[in-house]
Nucleic acid binder design. Structure first.
Length: 566
RNA sequence: UGGGGAGUCGUCCAACGGGCAGGACACAGGACUCUGGAUCCUGGUAUUGGGGUUCGAAUCCCUGCUCCCCAGCCA
């Protein structure tokens, strides 16, 4: 059976531009993109959008896509993040072959570029302090003032820059600046910093350097060096484009075309590395791969598939319009994918003991269960049935509400793959009144699959045989934030005020069918009538732990809510 | 009040040089169902305001309004 992918014909303004460039033979008809993460955190679903875009476009147009780490700031970057990013992109299903690069690969070249600009009189070493530089920059409405160092001689600049590199100065003592225009309306053109002194160990170059290029001085040239044709980035870099153009023009080197698009925003989700890091560091979640995190590794652990994430990224489109996607759309795609491929099993999350009084005491039947009604090729399995079972507490109500199809005193329901039963008697705890056991009768004529199983009942319940079931822990997840927009907070407060304190519910007394014994971490199932679940790596030989990836759509919950609201 | 961007159903995205505003999700109703799942029908709501040009404007012109980004030696 074919796994459906969403083949929306991918067309958007970026692909249109590239198609046009191919038609006019710009860049000799080549298409070469890149995904340029900074290794200062884990990748999230917003990065997935960019990854799918860059790798997707390259593939569609018969081009290439590089992976390049923009590692120009050793104080924030770590090898750990490089590893996780590489793993995440692979998991998403993309391949950069031998084209794994680092901006730090180009540090020598970038240094030469800087020297070139100094020699051209287009860059100078400034001894102003950070505060002074800020003051000289002017404001949004007022022009800046030129630094007194702006007219140093080329020789002096060369000497100072060399000594910066040699480690003669403290952090912050000097910077190298481009000499452009202090009165430009675009603040990025007001003599931006190209190099700063940072006595820090770099995750790749170690202590070779104590000066590092800024992103602005490294990014465009890195793209140029790699022969990138289309540099796709997010909207906030629109203002930087004239600066990148200026560097490329002054250096007279290959000139990629930069195209900006709107980054992804998701409702009830935060997609800012800084804030995600805060959630991790302040212990609101259990690490970057906590299944509640919108990181790729979080989604992976939660049970999402790469296919679902790719379909989602394709469907949301690409535009320059800032927008927020409804998280329900992402959930739709994981349900769609898992519906087609997940094995159905029975698991009872909140067990209620049920005794079938007229069923033979020591008898055990092996009933045939279909693994996936969406895919006959997935076959069948046997599930044991016996006199004492567990069903979901939620499947019994007394008194039954309107439109209730499940069990209630005197009511009938079908046990999936088994028999129709009738609720005859309810046992309650004398003190609390809590229902602790149900006594039922079964109709032997109604066995599933038998020719005369004929009779219809509205409700079908899942169950496990008490004697055969295995214990499991199940972790239920809800959105991390209560508000659609987590940043919607009052003065003096921040996104943490909108955190959902009940985003994780751990159930430790769950009972799952015996076929799940030995299930491997990462395996995905549909727990019948409940949702999609995935075995968590926390599982051990004797203890299964499941994460709920996403619940099934719950029509009854809607009906009940409608009833409540009259 | 400088510069750069953006405004189409509830939410996203379409409508390629003016020609019936379409799809997905969400929502509502129904059919079907041994998952209140899936599937299948059906339905509603949108062009930022105001002026023009035109037989005809989301699209062209003028003029407002709203929102986002920029004053890191972050990316």
């Amino acid at each position: 059976m074919k796994i459906p992918t969403n083949s929306v014909s991918p067309s958007d303004f970026i692909r249109d531009i590239i198609g046009e460039d191919i038609k006019t033979n710009k860049y000799d008809g080549r298409v070469h993109t890149r995904f340029p993460p900074e290794p200062n955190g884990y990748l999230h679903i917003g990065h997935a959008k960019s990854i799918c875009l860059n790798f997707g476009i390259a593939k569609e147009f018969g081009g290439l896509c590089n992976l390049r780490f923009d590692d120009t700031n050793p104080t924030k970057e770590q090898a750990e993040f490089v590893e996780s990013i590489i793993g995440d992109i692979r998991w998403l299903g993309f391949d950069w072959e031998d084209r794994l690069f680092y901006a730090s690969d180009y540090f020598d070249k970038l240094y030469e570029f800087a020297v070139q600009l100094i020699k051209k009189g287009k860059a100078y070493v400034d001894s102003l302090t950070p505060d002074e530089i800020r003051e000289h920059r002017g404001t949004l409405t007022e022009p800046g003032r030129e630094s007194p160092c702006r007219n140093r001689s080329v020789e002096e600049n060369l000497d100072l820059f060399e000594r910066m590199r040699a480690g003669e100065f403290e952090d912050g003592a000097y910077v190298l600046r481009a000499k452009i225009d202090m009165s430009s309306a675009n603040l990025n053109m007001r003599d931006p910093v190209m190099y700063r002194i940072l006595h820090a160990t770099h995750h790749r170059t170690g202590d070779k350097w104590c000066i590092y290029p800024t992103y602005d001085f490294a990014h465009g040239q890195s793209d140029s060096i790699e022969g990138i044709t289309h540099s796709i980035c997010t909207l906030e870099f629109e203002d930087h484009r004239p600066l990148y153009d200026w560097f490329l023009d002054q250096l007279d080197i290959h000139h990629p075309r930069q195209i900006e698009f709107a980054r992804l925003n998701l409702s009830r989700t935060i997609l800012s590395k800084r804030k995600l890091r805060q959630l991790v560091e302040e212990g609101y979640v259990n690490g970057w791969d906590d299944p509640r995190m919108p990181t790729i590794s979080g989604f992976r652990r939660r049970g999402y598939t790469p296919e679902a994430i790719r379909d989602f990224c394709e469907r949301i489109g690409v535009a320059k319009n800032e927008s927020t996607i409804d998280i329900a759309l992402l959930e739709h795609y994981i349900r769609q994918d898992l519906n087609k491929r997940a094995t159905r099993v029975m698991a009872v999350l909140r067990p209620l003991r049920l005794v079938i009084d007229n069923y033979p005491e020591d008898s055990v039947e092996e009933l045939v269960a279909i693994n996936n009604p969406e895919d006959a090729g997935m076959g069948t399995r046997k599930v044991p049935f016996s006199r004492v079972l567990y069903i979901e507490r939620d499947d019994f109500r007394e008194p039954p509400p309107k439109k209730w199809f499940r069990l209630a005193p005197g009511r009938e329901a079908r046990l999936k793959h088994a028999y129709i039963i009738k609720c005859e008697r309810v046992v309650r705890d004398e003190k609390t009144g809590e229902v602790i056991e149900l006594h039922c009768s079964y109709d032997p004529e109604t066995k599933s699959g038998e020719a005369k199983a004929g009779r219809k009942v509205k409700g079908t319940l899942h169950w496990v045989s008490a004697a055969h079931a295995i214990d499991a822990e199940v972790r239920l997840y809800d959105h991390l934030f209560l508000k659609e927009n987590p940043d919607d907070v009052g003065e003096g407060s921040d996104f943490r005020a909108n955190l959902n304190l009940h985003s994780l519910e751990t159930l430790t007394a769950c009972k799952v069918e015996s076929s799940l014994a030995g299930a491997k971490p990462g395996s995905r199932y549909q727990f019948f009538r409940l949702g999609y679940f995935c075995v968590d790596p926390d599982s051990s030989d004797g203890k299964l732990v499941f994460n709920r990836t996403v619940s099934l759509r719950d029509t009854w919950a809607k009906i009940e809510e409608a009833l409540r609201n009259g």
